[in-house]
Write a protein that binds this DNA or RNA. Structure first.
Lengths: 226, 226
DNA sequence: CCGTTGATGTAAACGTTGATTACATTAGCG
DNA sequence: CGCTAATGTAATCAACGTTTACATCAACGG
């Protein structure tokens, strides 16, 4: 029996088939390796043409191995999204910290800038996060919680700005929270979805985004403050 | 020979298999039937789980038949997108006509409102249009041209508003064109992508969208005009 | 040091997909 | 009627997600 197994392994090395050279039978840290492989492959070929088989191959394991750790392709991508959301939250928080408590509108702008910068630098991760068909957003407590955390920070900043009279007269708080989010999301998605070409955005993407953000921030501010 | 063929057809009717009852061998108007079937299926199950086989089955033909008329799945969806873009342009134009030339800002708002109304009423079509992976946008002259047409109308309205002093001081034209588009796109996509839940938009979608649009329009206007 | 056990990998299979091919059927036209 | 081009069919292919039965190995108790 053992001879046969060794023979099979020998043949595998000779034909150099799917699972290539690996030190031991067990991978060691397959979960992380799969997440990394998934990101790398999405960066190469896009989200929709990602296959679990290729992820497995890149990680150096057989096609069925990923299903030991993720119940489905969706579960794998949801794990990628969780990792991505952590980094996004981190990036936004870091940018926010560069502003003081004195100017909530500057804080709001920092959130937008941090969000856009991160999306620009990590389009793949962003794409995975914002999808609701590839991942199971509401099935992940982490995703829901971190998303809510950002929303609460924005809500607090906007409410703070209102109390200090920094907002333009006539603007409803509820509308502004939603609008700010929609605006940033729209800018980021237009870039991700490749709509910059059609809209003749000829400046570098980061520059166009930043200018648009400046305009938005300017327009919601009180006239006297400008 | 003929007897055999008739027998086969008879059996097919009995077993009620893939190509079901149809008057003649040729369909008559397969192209339109396929487009309709595609839309109906996307509405049922979403864009990403659409298969050409199902489209063919729904249209009452075999799995390979669609490829006589569309070179690929992408080509089929691009045709759907062209049909959709026509209707979007039509909806936006109709909404725009309800406003006079006197108030370009009202025209801008009408464009946004028409766009959002249409997206809300035709989420499937909207999803197909805005995708750049499912369809070949830049390969379709029609899509590029109609998109550009809308952009030009917006540009003209905004420039008109600037000359009449209706815009808030400090706003750059170029930024405003892009920002307006990004804002509307963001609102529509947040709804399409199912982000309303997480952002606690508890009002009816149409109402929340309209309020956000009002806020945006208000914020870009000159203070004196309000 | 041996044997059991559970975690983790493999290989093979199943049903479905997008796409291609060779072939069958038909409508339209002379 | 007979020819041709258009149109539909059926068989086929590789790739996909997923499941299954089985193989391997690390850890641990005796």
């Amino acid at each position: 029996m053992i001879t046969f197994v060794k023979y099979v392994r020998y043949c595998r090395q000779m034909t150099s088939n799917s699972p290539p050279a690996r030190a031991s039978y067990h991978h060691g840290n397959l979960v992380e390796a799969l997440l990394e492989a998934a990101i790398a492959l999405i960066e190469d070929k896009g989200v929709e043409s990602l296959s679990v088989r290729e992820v497995a191959k890149r990680a150096g394991v057989s096609a069925g191995a990923p299903f030991r750790h993720f119940s489905s392709k969706t579960a794998l991508l949801t794990a990628v999204a969780e990792q991505a959301m952590s980094r996004l939250t981190e990036a936004v928080s870091a940018e926010l910290k560069t502003t003081g408590d004195a100017d909530p509108i500057a804080g709001l702008r920092a959130i937008g800038q941090g969000y856009l910068n991160w999306a620009l630098a990590n389009p793949t991760h962003f794409q995975v996060i914002s999808s609701r068909t590839l991942i199971d957003f509401h099935g992940s407590e982490k995703l829901v919680a971190e998303n809510e955390a950002i929303r609460l920070i924005m809500e607090k900043l906007i409410d703070d700005a209102r109390r200090r009279g920094l907002l333009r007269h006539g603007i409803e708080i509820e509308d502004l929270i939603f609008s700010s989010r929609a605006f940033i999301y729209g800018v980021a998605r237009m870039w991700i979805d490749g709509h910059f070409l059609e809209w003749r955005i000829e400046r570098p993407a980061a520059q166009a985004m930043s200018a648009a953000l400046d305009m938005f921030i300017l327009s919601i501010g009180a006239e006297v403050a400008q």
